[in-house]
Design a protein around this nucleic acid. Structure first.
Length: 749
DNA sequence: AGTGCAACTCTTTTT
DNA sequence: GAGTTGCACT
């Protein structure tokens, strides 16, 4: 009892109301930093503790593995029985459901998940007339269609693509995908929805099972997820399942991935009788920072509306810094971080935020130079590396020999003389059944035939290692103890030797050894070792990293599938390994900051065209604005915004104007440093510029890229520097900034 | 089938 | 400017 009082006493009145709420659906509008996770986890604990809900009947879904892990951890800390609640990502729940109901969904129970690249590969084969780029575009559209639960025959497909052939392309892709037995990410949501929609008994069983369903970050859910939630909750069937969604419409930033803000805006209509509780007390940021955030997001229409109240003090006024160039920007950031470090502020208190990954480069260079440790979040993706995808393809193929994409990836790597033509023949012969059967049934050239033979032998050997298709149970038991001994020594060579025996690997073996054997025997190790030798890459050690990550899984088919699910459904978890310095500055895209907080934040590149991008209008512009809002609300104590007058973009130097978002923050909410560009109402720069004399109107110019030309006019850049306009004989008119580009501007008489 | 060079195109990306 | 794609050549 005492314990119960304690964990509830930590809540403010609205949080407590959200935890105790019952009787109808609930929408919790949780502003940034309002203790959202605390509310969800406390509610889970409360339901189990106080309301005697069976933990097994609780389903809580999030969007990222990280969020799911954190939620589980914190709920279990409050109530140990929460261990048995289903707390997972939407997609991992989908995978779990589909493994149990593979047949109803029309897929293999040994399915693996195709990522975006795999989709493009498969689509390229399903519709060969598509160029690589067309295939990539169509694959993206197919993903989007699935995010909206549109099948190829759906009437709403035209809202996804106006290409009249799109439905056929989509249908061809689906046919080919079903032949592989695999699914793509969209299927992990859409297929469970379709299965439940069409199977009343199963739906009813789900209603009986899940008495409580909670969804986190609901503003980033897509239509398919909404439809799935509707089926699971049995809204129209009075299932009595309690639904609680938590989110913040102001932080919806994944529309381009199919997220539909309307889900949260319309929740009250879609789930009749919904109560709404707002969490508006912000425990993260000082009030000056929140004032900026509010003044920005206020410019958006169609909000549910929320006003954050700072639980903390006023704090420092956020700072806006105008800088001449992007190099000044990186230097400025490095400088204030280094100075703060001198005064005892750890590097880890700082985060540098940018709109695009490409912007990280300058900071990396500068920080390297100044020996400021940094960590880049989310740029290098472990699972997307060639060697990792190769190894995973082999493993996936062993799990599911209908996997065409995996087959094509590995069958001729290293070279076995099996070219595209031979591959097509094998796939045609084995489609929908088994590509290994296809290998055996197909007639190929002598060279290709030999290669296929070697490939099949490998595949069969690896399959045998999973310890199934055992001829006699008795031998398997006998082999178990023997192999256990070998495993204890963990010597890969020993295992390899043991695996050479006709008897299958035993149940005690670790999957890591299987993965290692696959990598070595398939020739991938040798193949990538030579790549390392030539290009100085780290492919071999990356492969070793993959082997290590399999150590916790048993060497069985189930262990293998679990391992693949883990990899496919937790892709953010790159190797958080060795190189990461303990105390370091975080370099991160604005998107990736969602859910994070830092004592000191610098949002860089606050320039029109970069942030927001200049092609953004209407709803998309509002999404950019929300992204800015997310960025601002990451800051606890200090916030800096930087804006450059000149930026290199795609190899060209461009004049930049300050982001329109800056003007939306009212005057007086920012301390402004640096030279204000003219558009912000600054006085003109001084009169006599020595450069102006050299580059007078009429001056002849020779430029390496553009040839001969003549200065036809001069003006002043946003930061008061001389700008010349040059008309070239070749036809274009270009602007130059002599101060920075003098080297490429030769003066002619 | 593998290599080399010219041409293209550049967001964001939980799963 | 850089990384990638696609074609042509061997």
């Amino acid at each position: 009892m005492q314990e119960a009082a304690d964990y509830l006493a930590a809540l403010n009145p609205s949080q407590l109301a959200a935890v105790k709420h019952d009787g109808s659906s609930l929408l919790i509008l949780a502003g940034a930093g309002s203790g959202k996770t605390r509310v969800i986890t406390t509610k889970i604990a409360y339901l189990i503790k106080e309301k005697h809900i069976d933990p097994y009947a609780v389903l809580a879904v999030t969007f990222t593995k990280k969020a799911a892990n954190e939620m589980k951890e914190r709920a279990v800390a409050l109530e140990p029985r929460a261990e048995y609640a289903q707390i997972r990502t939407f997609h991992s729940w989908g995978a779990y459901f589909l493994r149990a109901h593979a047949e109803a969904a029309g897929i293999s129970k040994n399915f693996t998940v195709y990522d975006d690249d795999d989709m493009v590969t498969l689509l390229g084969k399903a519709v060969p007339s598509l160029s690589r780029q067309q295939a990539a575009l169509a694959a993206h559209k197919i993903s989007l269609a699935k995010d909206y639960c549109c099948t190829p025959d759906s009437e709403r497909l035209c809202t996804i693509s106006d290409d009249p052939q799109f439905a056929d392309i989509y249908a061809a892709y689906e046919k080919r995908l079903r032949e592989t037995g695999n699914v793509d990410f969209g299927d992990l949501i859409m297929l469970p929805y379709l299965v439940l929609r069409d199977n009343g008994a199963l739906r009813h069983a789900m209603h009986l099972r899940y008495r409580v369903i909670m969804v986190d970050e609901y503003q980033d859910s897509n239509v398919a997820q909404y439809l799935l939630l509707q089926q699971l909750a049995g809204v129209e069937e009075s299932s009595g399942t309690y639904v609680c969604v938590v989110g913040d419409d102001d932080q919806s930033i994944y529309r381009f991935r199919g997220a539909e803000v309307q889900n949260i805006l319309n929740f009250q209509n879609q789930f009749p009788g919904t109560d709404v509780i707002r969490l508006e007390m912000n425990y993260r940021s000082t009030s000056e920072i929140l004032a900026c955030a509010d003044s920005v997001v206020r410019h958006n229409g169609g909000r549910l509306g929320k006003t954050l109240v700072a639980a903390r003090g006023k704090g420092k006024l956020p700072t806006l810094v105008f800088l001449p160039t992007q190099d000044d920007e990186t230097q400025f950031c490095a400088e204030i971080i280094a100075q703060a470090y001198q005064n005892g502020t750890p590097y880890s208190e700082w985060a540098i935020l940018y709109r695009t990954n490409a912007q990280s480069l300058g900071f990396e260079t500068e920080f390297l130079h100044r020996k400021i440790p940094y960590t880049i979040v989310g740029s290098l993706k472990f699972y997307e590396r060639e060697e990792i995808k190769d190894a995973l393809a082999w493993i996936s193929f062993v799990a599911n020999p209908r996997d065409e994409v995996a087959f094509r990836r590995i069958v001729n790597k290293p070279v076995r003389g099996i070219g595209a033509v031979s591959q097509d023949k094998v796939v045609a012969a084995g489609a929908g059944v088994s590509l290994l059967a296809g290998c055996r049934n197909v007639k190929l050239s002598k060279k290709a035939q030999e290669g296929i033979q070697a490939f099949c032998a490998l595949a069969e050997e690896f399959t045998a290692m999973l310890g199934e298709s055992v001829p006699a149970a008795g031998t398997a038991v006998a082999e178990t103890s023997a192999a256990d001994g070998a495993t204890g020594n963990a010597a890969p060579e020993e295992y390899a030797a043991a695996a050479g025996n006709p008897a299958p690997a035993a149940s005690g073996a670790k999957l890591a050894e299987f993965v290692e054997a696959v990598i070595r025997k398939s020739g991938l190790e040798e193949f990538h070792k030579s790549q390392d030798d030539v290009s100085g890459t780290q492919k071999l050690s990356n492969l070793q990293e993959l082997v290590n990550s399999a150590v916790l899984y048993p060497c069985t088919r189930q262990g293998l599938l679990d391992f693949l699910d883990h990899i496919q459904l937790d892709r953010t978890l790159e190797t958080e390994d060795s190189a990461a310095p303990r105390d370091s500055v975080t370099l991160i895209t604005l998107h990736n900051t969602k859910g994070l907080e830092f004592p000191r934040v610098i949002i860089t590149g606050m320039e029109s065209g970069i942030f927001p991008r200049d092609d953004k209008t209407g709803g998309e512009l509002e999404e950019e604005r929300r992204l800015f809002y997310v960025g601002i609300t990451r800051a606890k104590n200090e916030l800096y915004l930087t804006s450059c007058g000149l930026r290199r973009l795609y190899g060209r130097t461009n004049f930049m104007q300050p982001s329109p978002f800056l003007a939306e923050i009212g005057a007086g909410r920012l301390r402004v440093l640096g030279q204000k560009p003219s558009s912000f109402g600054s006085e003109r720069a001084g009169d006599e510029d020595p450069l102006a004399r050299r580059y007078r109107k009429g001056t002849g110019i020779y430029h390496d890229d553009y040839g001969h030309g003549q200065v036809i006019g001069t003006e002043t850049s946003p930061d008061g520097e001389l700008v010349i306009r040059v008309s070239f004989e070749s036809g274009g008119i270009k602007k130059f900034l002599p101060k920075y580009q003098e080297k490429s501007l030769m003066i002619e008489d």
